[in-house]
Design a protein around this nucleic acid. Sequence first.
DNA 1: GCTAATATATCGTGATACGATATATCCATG
DNA 2: CATGGATATATCGTATCACGATATATTAGC
Lengths: 159, 159
Amino acid sequence: MKEVRPSSDSLIERLAEFRYRLRTFLQFSEQAAHAAGLQPQQHQLLLQIAGAPADALPTIAYAAERLGLRHNSVVELANRSVEEGLLERTSDEADARRVLLRVTSRGARLLQKLAADHRSELEVMGPALIEALTRIEHYEPDHAPAALPVMRTAVRGAR
Amino acid sequence: MKEVRPSSDSLIERLAEFRYRLRTFLQFSEQAAHAAGLQPQQHQLLLQIAGAPADALPTIAYAAERLGLRHNSVVELANRSVEEGLLERTSDEADARRVLLRVTSRGARLLQKLAADHRSELEVMGPALIEALTRIEHYEPDHAPAALPVMRTAVRGAR
DNA sequence: GCTAATATATCGTGATACGATATATCCATG
DNA sequence: CATGGATATATCGTATCACGATATATTAGC
């Protein structure tokens, strides 16, 4: 009579596995960016600018928030991207402090290709990612080696 | 008669949203590491060492593969971590070239706390992450803004 | 109009991952 | 059981890039 014993790996093991999967994806992404002739950060900047929802202004500050960077870092990143013809600066007419970023057609072409590649890659790795994540959420602090009567009730330690 | 039109945002928008969610999680993680007195990379190193499955040797090379870093980067990362009493080096008796890494009890304590924090955080952000990911997988290239003759055939550029 | 707040830009610095290279150990083959 | 090649880790100099601190420009509040 086999107990449920939801597999004997620890929470830390599961977290490690999840991070490994994440990193694998991120590395795919960086490599794809490089293959397209972009720095990974440039790719991300283009993505967030081109992928900004209609109700958001594609400003430096917006990109910074989306990329988790400080404003000045985005300024520099945008500089490099403009120099390489991936991005354009326009000043906002409504508020001249703002700089609106726009992806050039060259940038858009590269981005489009990268998007397709990412989509198909995520179709492949997505499930494993989700499973790793789900296994974290399903973790129950069970793991006393073998003998302990499985006397568990609820999800201790959930928030 | 409403068409299925699986919501009108573009693939790029969805990818942008997914990356934003990912980054949000990663930033939570970095911040949590810092709050525990660790560099995020150290946290990741400890996690992969402590979270190595039983059948894997926790060597420099193993950590490098799991972290997506080069060997030498891990050597340096391990150095710093050893200096701070988070990690120990042991040489493998079976193969003296190898260095086995072990998390100290101090490291383990910090890691344990971080693991709990990550778990509860993932319980919160996990669903949104999964949804963003699923929306990428569900994307159907529908989005010709009305007029353009959609003359696309296959998933050009897929792997 | 003047002060505070917001948005972007500039500049110097530091951390860290990397390539190239070196050293140590193991292994295969004769 | 010596030797060449492969594997594992270590060292060192370098470059990138995000950052803090600071500056400048524009807008907003009163």
